[in-house]
């Protein structure tokens, strides 16, 4: 079970800021595949991974990173701070 969080337009497209996901995915990309298969709103949000960033336990990471031991996964668009 992992906490999955969404920010900015990813949150708006999915329609929730966070949810608990039961998964055996071994990498972030595998988790994305599982989410895409759920419902069209997920497929829409995860259409183009190059437009997305991911953080694992609040550290920026990559889509091919392993999920083992990870408690919190966050998906969001490129950041626009400053």
């Amino acid at each position: 079970m992992v906490d999955v969080m969404y920010f900015a337009w990813v949150r708006e497209r999915i329609g929730a800021p966070r949810e608990q996901v039961e998964t055996n995915a071994s990498t972030v990309a595998d988790l994305v595949e599982e989410l895409r298969a759920r419902e069209p709103r997920y497929a829409e949000a995860f259409k183009d991974l190059s437009a997305l960033r991911v953080a694992l336990d609040q550290e920026l990471s990559d889509f091919d990173a392993p999920l083992k031991g990870v408690r919190e996964v966050a998906f969001f668009p490129p950041m626009t701070g400053g």
């Binding site: 920010f7 900015a8 966050a74 969001f76 950041m79 626009t80 701070g81 400053g82």
Partner: peptide, 14 residues
């Protein structure tokens, strides 16, 4: 700092 805060700190402007 400005360059990194712009693209590596988790803020999103709407």
């Amino acid at each position: 700092l400005m360059d990194y805060l712009k693209s590596r700190a988790p803020f999103w402007k709407k």
